[in-house]
Design a protein around this nucleic acid. Structure first.
Length: 609
RNA sequence: GGAGCCGUAGUUCAGUCGGUUUAGAACGCCGGCCUGUCACGCCGGAGGUCGCGAGUUCGAGUCUCGUCGGCUCCGCCA
């Protein structure tokens, strides 16, 4: 018999109750201390551990707050002890008893309640439990497959439960802070209109309008802008957003956003507000005082120094551009490249050949052809490529990088996009390897001055880098036509430890500017009217200058809790194939439902009913 | 759309070059003993479609192909 079994008779035998019988819980399991000695208390919770000594039984009783040891002793109630032999892991019990000090030397320093125990005078079995499919403990991590199928059990683990307690506190701090700043919390529709520009939409068929579909919002962007036209002045919402794209450790198809929009503001005002919000969140969840203002970095500088637009500033390892040094070099690989960058890693000469080979494989993921390197030794440069360099090139390289014996230099050469991505991501990997990352540090930075547009090779047109409602920087509106790639946006991202945790912009608040933007994106007038007509219409009637920001709540909580995945801060997350292991969503639907919606499935598509 | 890692007892894993018995360990589970444990301890026990399907081979947990599932990443994510 692998699983413990029980039937209805167990309820009778151990006197399971159907209700509380008037019992009232007096404390959570983290609350009792030496100051409660002698108090008569009633605790309820789940059985974490049972230590049955025959004549004496200890149970660690768990609830979401913590553990308390309760003891069944014959001198207190022999009958209660006798019945307690049947208690098993995860049974739900209620106990009544007196708080008493543990015997001399028996305190448990690992437990908040370790000074005391509750001597059980009476207890009730409130619920039985099968043996759980995995042990509900922080020490043992079950496979994700099991954890997601039995998510409600996984959520009992203190570390995971703690993530949600922190998440709750963070949300409350946001609401308190924004309320104090004069914001109104207003809800926007979840059933809305598909505006296929950007991510794929989740579609919802309309029964009353056969052949037509709602879309779930990728963000409440247009609604919040129109709330500014309404005159609400300052709006926020903690809302679900939906994007039908592939998943990552930090990306789920439905996720939560702290969505903010403000009227009569510029970039500085939105950023000031955002900094105050993040400060409040850190203070109230972790007790951390973040210094403000957060540093600013231009997009172009981030790309130049770090190769990515979301640099992890907990450590240095800046890139150095050396394209010019090798412009006419005899080393053709470098000479012919659009961009040549070097990353000096202090002390990196200790890296083994095996590690360098792994890094080479790593950068190939980003399209790099290879990974050139130089180990700087006292009297020589050890490297497979240095023999191709002239003395002048070597001298300039040494001067530009400031390299010293014991360092390693990593090179990337190629198209700028590839070289940046490869060396930028390698930077993080090497930073971890060299122990440069302080896990307790929170490095925030605003990335500003993004390009407004970028060329999309697949669509053969320019697309908005942020979104099409972002305004161009003052005086740059005309660039949209003359030099689309050169125009800068009034957009800003907030980056925390290498994660984009927020992004926003000042919007186009005139119809003219917005129409010009659509034109630059190759969206015809009729098309713009069809898709965004309600926005353009709204902008006709006195739209105030406005802008805002949206924070990725899940990512923020992930970083605050130190979770490795966004899934660990979402109660019921989806798998990489966007399915739910617990409910088995998405699932087939009845033919009747489809008929009502006017939808017919392809012959080979699975259905039922 | 693509690349990589993984799938063996309820769970977490080990399983060497394809060959030694009945595929192991730990935890959990079941039974017994136990009055100061706290991941209690001691004794005993049960528990396996090696994800699934083909193939190679005298012989497959191990090799090959396919397939399903989980994870990480590239593309994608205004």
């Amino acid at each position: 018999m692998s699983q413990q079994q029980f039937d209805d008779s167990v309820y009778d035998k151990y006197r399971t109750v159907d209700d509380l019988g008037g019992w009232r819980r007096t404390h959570h399991n983290n609350q009792l201390s030496a100051s409660d000695l002698g108090a008569e208390v009633c605790l309820m919770g789940w059985v974490q551990f049972r230590r049955d000594h025959g004549g004496l039984i200890f149970i660690d009783l768990r609830d979401r707050e913590g553990l308390t040891q309760v003891v069944f002793a014959p001198e207190v109630n022999a009958d209660a002890l006798e019945r307690a032999h049947a208690i098993r892991s995860e049974y739900v019990v209620a106990v009544k008893g007196v708080v008493r000090e543990r015997p001399e030397g028996m305190a448990n320093a690992n437990l908040v309640t370790g000074q005391i125990e509750v001597a059980v005078s009476e207890w009730k079995l409130l619920g039985l439990s099968d043996t759980p499919p995995f042990e509900i403990e922080d020490r043992v991590e079950a496979g994700e497959q099991h954890r997601l199928k039995y998510r409600y059990l996984d959520l009992r683990r203190p570390s995971l439960a703690g993530n949600f307690i922190l998440r709750h506190k963070a949300c409350q701090s946001v609401r308190r802070y924004l309320d104090g700043q004069g914001f109104l919390e207003i809800e926007t529709p979840v059933l809305t209109k598909s505006t296929p520009e950007g991510a794929r939409d989740y579609l919802v068929p309309s029964r009353l309008n056969p052949g037509k579909f709602y879309a779930l919002p990728q963000s409440p962007q247009l609604f919040k802008q129109l709330l500014m036209v309404s005159g609400f002045d300052r709006y926020f919402q903690i809302c679900k957003c939906f994007r039908d794209e592939d998943l990552r450790a930090d990306r789920q198809p439905e996720f939560s956003q702290i969505d903010i929009e403000m009227s009569f503001v510029d970039e500085q005002m939105v950023q000031d507000l955002a900094e105050g919000l993040v400060q409040a969140m850190f203070k109230e969840t972790k007790g951390i005082d973040l210094p403000a203002p957060f540093p600013r970095m231009k997009y172009a500088d981030a790309m130049r120094d770090y190769g990515v637009d979301k640099p992890d500033l907990r450590f240095e390892l800046k890139h150095v551009e050396v394209t010019d040094i090798f412009a006419g070099s005899g080393f053709k690989v470098f000479a012919a490249s659009e961009l040549v960058k070097v990353m000096r890693v202090p002390g990196g000469a200790e890296l083994s050949r095996k590690e360098i080979d792994e890094y080479t494989k790593f950068v190939e993921i980003y399209g790099a052809k290879g990974l050139a390197w130089i180990k700087v030794k006292e009297d020589e440069w050890q490297s497979p490529i240095v023999k191709f360099f002239s003395d002048e090139e070597k001298a300039k390289l040494a001067e530009r990088t400031g390299c010293e014996p014991g360092d390693i230099l990593f090179f990337q050469a190629g198209p700028a996009e590839v070289a940046n991505a490869a060396l930028g991501n390698l930077r993080v990997k090497v930073g971890e390897r060299m122990g440069l990352i302080d896990q307790d540090q929170y490095a925030l930075v605003w990335i500003t001055d993004f390009p407004l547009l970028e060329y999309d090779e697949d669509e053969k047109r320019f697309v908005a880098r942020h979104h099409p409602f972002t305004s161009a920087q003052p005086g740059q509106m005309d660039l949209i036509e003359s030099d689309p790639a050169g125009a800068l946006a009034r957009a800003y991202d907030l980056v925390l430890n290498g994660y984009e945790v927020g992004g926003g912009s000042i919007r186009n608040h005139t119809r003219q500017a917005q129409e010009k933007m659509f034109a630059a994106l190759g969206i015809r007038k009729e098309e713009a009217e069809d898709r965004f007509g309600f926005l353009l219409e709204g902008l006709k009637y006195g739209a105030p200058p406005h802008g805002g920001i949206a924070f990725g709540l899940d990512r923020l909580i992930m970083i605050l809790t130190g979770a490795r995945s966004i899934r660990d801060v979402m109660a019921f997350p989806k798998t990489q194939k966007a399915t739910c292991m617990m409910t088995e969503a998405p699932g087939p639907v009845d033919k009747k439902q489809l008929r009502e919606l006017g939808i017919r499935l392809r012959e080979n598509t699975e259905d039922k009913g």
